[in-house]
């Protein structure tokens, strides 16, 4: 599978850009948090596309964001 570059992304309509990023992010997140992958991916997709592209290139920053998202999700669920 070819890397998702900023130029390939920019060529897609806005509503497809997040979907394209999500399709790449989901399997990476699923490897770490199988049960929460859908929610975590949805949370991370709220981040700017440029930052999401950097995260796809950098497993370390991706995993840091995943842990951040899990903490936010748990805090959110505790409030419900």
């Amino acid at each position: 599978q070819e890397p998702l570059t900023a130029s390939r992304l920019a060529a897609a309509p806005l509503h497809e850009q997040k979907q394209m990023i999500g399709e790449r992010l989901y399997p990476l997140i699923h490897d770490v948090h199988t049960q929460l992958a859908g929610k975590i991916t949805g949370m991370l997709l709220e981040i700017d596309n440029s930052e999401l592209l950097l995260m796809l290139e950098s497993p370390e920053s991706l995993h840091a964001k995943i842990e951040e998202a899990v903490a936010v999700l748990q805090a959110h669920q505790a409030m419900e």
Binding site: P13, G42, H76, M79
Partner: peptide
Amino acid sequence: SNGSSINWPPEFHPGVPWKGLQNIDP
């Protein structure tokens, strides 16, 4: 809870249009 945040975050599933897109490109 006022009930408005229960559906947050919008979950993403491969091959399914992400519902969070409604906020970005209605």
